[in-house]
């Protein structure tokens, strides 16, 4: 059974950026044929997983406030299935690394990630988590969480707007939709290795470079 393009309800496929990454992943997964029954089961599981991503309550600085705003009345991520934030890493599916990670915090973050139960996903929120952001030059700041844990989606911004966060989370949903649970090769690398090709969420329209 062929893996289909991941779609999000009532949002056209083309509206999403960075479809190429996902398509290359699909191509790779489709190299190996899957049984129809197993494929259908995989679809069901992916549907369940992608629509029920519970985030860990984790925030270190400014982005955390925006993350709270995404959960509050106006933006309300419960609509999309990110129903609750769990305080215990054991019960969370997703860690939104919202804020700067410092040298002292790095082992703690790694430990939190290790404590989470599979399947687990990481979203790097904001400049600090992606690359160190404005604090890149500091002696005590980790320049990008991808140095210690594998990141699935990057959401740039300082802090990103709630819309950007929702968009990033939807990108993660799309990524979760192209996994194979039974048999076949999973696009997520083996334990311990970094997964290949994270999705980049772009705030700016693609043609921004052409205009200026």
């Amino acid at each position: 059974m062929e893996m289909k393009k991941p779609t999000i309800k009532s949002i056209p496929y083309e509206e999403f950026k960075d479809n190429e990454t996902l398509e290359s992943l699909i191509k790779e997964l489709n190299k190996e044929r899957t049984n129809v029954v197993v494929g259908a089961l995989d679809d069901l599981i992916n549907w369940g997983r992608s629509n029920s991503l519970w985030s860990l309550t984790f925030a270190t600085s400014c982005c955390g406030i925006e993350f709270m705003a995404v959960g509050a009345a106006r933006y309300d991520f419960a609509r999309f299935g990110f129903e609750v934030t769990r305080n215990s890493p054991r019960q969370a599916d997703l860690i939104m690394v919202a804020g700067t990670i410092t040298h002292k915090m790095a082992p703690v973050l790694k430990r939190l990630y290790d404590q989470m139960a599979d399947p687990k996903y990481v979203v790097a929120v904001g400049g600090c988590a992606i690359s160190g952001g404005p604090f890149k030059g500091s002696y005590h700041v980790l320049n990008g969480v991808d140095k210690i844990i594998p990141v699935d989606v990057y959401i740039p911004g300082c802090p990103p707007r709630p819309e950007a966060m929702l968009y990033g989370m939807m990108q993660l949903q799309r990524k979760v939709k192209i996994e194979k649970y039974f048999g076949g090769k999973n696009h997520r690398a083996k334990k311990g290795e970094m997964p290949n090709e994270p999705i980049i969420v772009t705030n700016a329209p693609i043609d921004i470079n052409e205009n200026c």
Partner: peptide, 23 residues
């Protein structure tokens, strides 16, 4: 404390004043 110590004061010593404003 210190889990979010970003060393802003040390960084500022090598930044210009308008740059420090951002921090």
């Amino acid at each position: 404390c210190g889990y979010i110590h970003r060393g802003i004061e040390k960084m500022s010593e090598s930044l210009t004043y308008p740059q420090i404003l951002a921090l």
